[in-house]
Simulated scan of single mutants.
Amino acid sequence: MRDRPDLPSDPLSDVLALLQVRSGAALHMTAGGPWALRFPAYPYLKFIAQLRGVLFVQVEGDAHPYRLEAGDCLLMRSGRPYIAATDLTLSAQDGAAHFAALRGGAATWGDPNAADGMEMIAGRFEFDASQRDLLEQVVPPELHIPADAQAAPALRALLDLYGREAGAPDAGARLVTDGLARIALVQALREPGGARHGWLAALADPKIGPALRLLHGAPERRWSVEELARETAMSRSALAQRFRQLVGMAPLQYLQAWRMRLARKALHEEDTPLAAIAWRLGYASESAFSAAFKRSSGSAPGAYRQQKRVVSALNPPQ
């Protein structure tokens, strides 16, 4: 249930709030001449903003590489190993070892002012690891945003500022980079046409997008597929088929899964009684909520809350 019912529902903001996106390391790199670096699997969101020259990114398992030209951005969340190179025919060196001794968040080699010189900003956004399945549902494995895309200019400016702030000793730098990370991710994910299928495509769909906003705007409501179809001017069968095609599950399955995500967040962060959480999420009783939560999470709400408190006590924030 939203705190301000007069405001329109914003599913993307809802999702990013659960992901708790924050900043990580950033690298400003200039180089000249041919090179190829191999990087291992990774547990966070990676980004590349190409400022000058051409860069190829070959993700393991993909038939074709991404070609990044000046102004392009690439967001990567698949976690698959990849090669970044100006020449993919070269034998790739160990990229992690290459940058292991790096200090100051900047790297230069060769002659970056040569005709084949290049410049880029690369780095990562970290997120709540317990929400990886949500990240995988929302963010495509790789999202290439070309220079002529609507979001590209703002995204490049944000990532450039991010690169300057990341690792800086200035007061408040971490707060600034965390904010920039969230804003940059929003800019990337709301690019029109950025995703052709999946949750982002569903949100942009003229029929399924409104259905998602209805579910996020009132998760406590006892929605039926008939009601959603009526509100979105679709037939029941057309809505169900299109929703499943884009989102990967039926509308009421999605509603149930979203309620459980909200429940886990509340149990982790609040001392709210279980009965109040149950009411907030539209359950007729605490026992009905507890049964649904146990089916979803494998443990009763009270046990889940206690477990999270123990984990938090053993791993206090740094």
Rank of each mutant, 00 (worst) to 15 (best):
Q307Y: 12
A263F: 05
A276M: 02
E269N: 06
R259E: 11
Y254D: 13
G282Q: 03
A300S: 13
S287D: 13
E226N: 14
L255A: 11
L274C: 12
K265T: 07
P301T: 08
P273Q: 08
L246D: 03
L239E: 06
G298L: 11
S285W: 01
R264W: 07
R305H: 12
A266Q: 05
A229P: 03
Q306W: 08
L252N: 11
S237F: 05
K308M: 12
L281G: 04
K308A: 09
G282L: 05
Y304C: 08
A303T: 11
A257M: 04
R244C: 06
S287L: 13
I277F: 05
R236N: 07
Q253H: 07
Q253R: 09
Y304G: 01
M249S: 13
P301W: 10
F289Y: 06
R259C: 12
R259D: 11
S235F: 00
A229H: 04
A288Q: 11
A238Q: 10
S290W: 04
Q253M: 07
A233S: 12
A276P: 00
W279M: 12
L281Y: 01
R264L: 02
R242V: 04
L281N: 02
A288W: 02
Y254K: 04
Q307T: 10
D271W: 06
P273T: 05
R244Y: 02
Q245E: 15
S290H: 02
R305A: 15
Q241I: 01
T232H: 01
R230K: 08
R242P: 03
Q241S: 07
Q241N: 02
W279C: 14
A257W: 08
A300K: 13
A291V: 06
A278T: 09
L267M: 04
S296Q: 14
P251W: 07
Y254H: 15
W279E: 15
S297N: 10
E270Y: 00
R264Y: 00
P301D: 08
M234C: 03
R242D: 10
Q245I: 12
R295C: 05
V247P: 05
A229V: 08
K308L: 11
L228Y: 02
R295L: 14
G248L: 08
D271P: 00
Q306F: 10
A266M: 02
G248P: 05
P273G: 13
A288E: 12
P273M: 06
L252G: 09
L281R: 04
L281V: 07
Y304W: 15
L246R: 08
S296V: 02
E269R: 12
G298Y: 11
A288V: 07
F243Y: 11
R295N: 13
K265H: 13
A238T: 13
A266C: 01
A292I: 01
F289V: 00
E226D: 14
Q306R: 15
A238V: 09
A266L: 08
A292N: 09
